[in-house]
Amino acid sequence: MALEKTWRWFGENDSITLAQLKQMGVEGVVTALHHIPNGEVWTIDEIQKVKNKIEKAGMRWSVVESLPVSEGIKTHSNDRPRLIANYQQSIRNLGACGINTICYNFMPVLDWARTDLQYKLPNGAESMYFDYPTFVAFDVFILKRPGAEQDYPAPILKKAKVIIQSMTDEEAEKLVNNIIIATQQFIDGVVDSSSLDPKKEFLSYIDVYKNIDREKLREHLKAFLDEVVPVAEEVGVRMAIHPDDPPFSLLGLPRIMSQMEDYEWLLNAQESESNGITFCVGSLSALKQNKLLEIIDKTGDRIHFVHLRNTEVLEDGSFYESGHLTGSQDMVNILEALLKEQKRRKFSGRKDFLMPFRPDHGLKLLSDFKGNFNPGYPLIGRLKGLAEIEGIMKGLEA
């Protein structure tokens, strides 16, 4: 039995319609209530409206991506009790509506980072690129985060200086927009295009973490799990944490969901099956030492959601998104391991054996250049990935 084919849909403002998803053979929709502000309750009425639209189009709402974890929960602000209570109620309401998988993350301030959103590949397609020296140039010389230069080795700082010296003001502003706004605002980022001074506002969020290191952030995640996992378990919902993207520290901020050690800690922190992971090949593969087949082997029974895409990782820690099959990871072996885990679950009698996957970020191809899509979410590039992955699954099943 193949993994469930899903697609991330950004609601009524998405230029890709539910009717089109049905035509493409999508079985489940991955979406969120994007119109509800972070920290507020998702009511049954609002959840049901979206669920009814999806079901009317002939699909099901498979996964919530995401129910955002507010910064106040991550930092333990004074408003935390209210935010936790609202999060718990949203879980209860989703469970009452029969939506049982929630993807979330615990990344501080910055959800995901790329420096170039229009990286040209040799065949003319466009990808997204994280150039490590360019990101350092942004952090040290454009954002001017206090003490930033102490976080990077001398060779990288040297490259960053060369980059910033040749960068025009227009290029610097574009880099600021790519990192702070363009990749964040459609996924409930902390700064959006309405900000009069995005760098200053961004720095103010970073400053809140000056006394929160890796261990302290882990404590905050543990407290979050202790309060929401029992609620999720009670109403039959599975929480699936997304790994850090990229899976290493940025901007001096701690990252606590990047490698096997982090997953071992997470699964021990709350042993309930409702405490699980989103297995994201693209994010995890950006750290060379991550062995993805080992992660599947050791966490398989807690993988509740799967993101599939590939990356090409470079020597200096930079990487670019290389499509779904081509790249540093062997997607055939990864899919085989996931299918075996799903089969094992089914034969063990688990009712929640089905593992939904979605083709993650796609290359911009063909008519994608004429469309208006969120960064990383074109139509044709993701459809190509969906078809490729489905073909591999059919072959493995045969």
Rank of each mutant, 00 (worst) to 15 (best):
K174C: 01
I256S: 06
N38R: 14
S272M: 10
S195I: 05
Y129E: 13
L94D: 02
G11Q: 12
P243F: 10
Q89N: 09
E227C: 01
M239W: 10
S285D: 12
A337R: 12
G381V: 07
R344P: 11
S70I: 09
Q184E: 03
S318D: 08
D330V: 09
L143I: 07
N100T: 13
D79G: 02
I36H: 06
V231I: 15
G391H: 12
M260Y: 11
M24G: 04
F373M: 01
S15L: 01
G376W: 11
P356Y: 01
G58M: 02
P378E: 10
I36Q: 08
R114G: 05
K370L: 14
E261H: 05
G317H: 09
T183W: 03
F305M: 12
H76F: 14
P133W: 03
P246D: 03
M128S: 13
K394T: 15
P246R: 07
K51R: 14
E294S: 13
F135H: 11
R82T: 14
C280I: 03
F373N: 05
S318H: 00
E315A: 15
F357W: 13
L386V: 08
D79Q: 15
I44N: 08
P81A: 11
K120A: 08
D207H: 14
G317E: 08
A269S: 15
T168N: 04
V176T: 07
P254L: 02
W61K: 06
R255V: 02
R345I: 00
Q20I: 00
Q89E: 15
L110C: 09
N211K: 12
R382D: 06
S272A: 11
K216S: 10
I256D: 08
E397S: 07
T299Q: 04
E321L: 02
L379M: 08
Q20P: 02
V191G: 02
A172S: 14
N374Y: 14
G124W: 13
D330H: 09
N13E: 15
P378H: 09
E227S: 08
L363M: 09
F373E: 01
I303C: 04
L83R: 09
L21D: 00
V313P: 05
K216R: 15
R8A: 02
D262Y: 07
F186S: 06
D151P: 06
M128E: 11
G11E: 11
G327Q: 03
W112C: 11
S283M: 07
V63H: 00
M59S: 11
L366M: 12
N100G: 13
Q165E: 15
A398K: 14
E215Y: 04
S285F: 04
I99A: 07
T311M: 11
S204P: 06
L221A: 15
D207A: 13
K74T: 05
K120P: 00
P230C: 11
L363E: 00
S348M: 05
S62R: 09
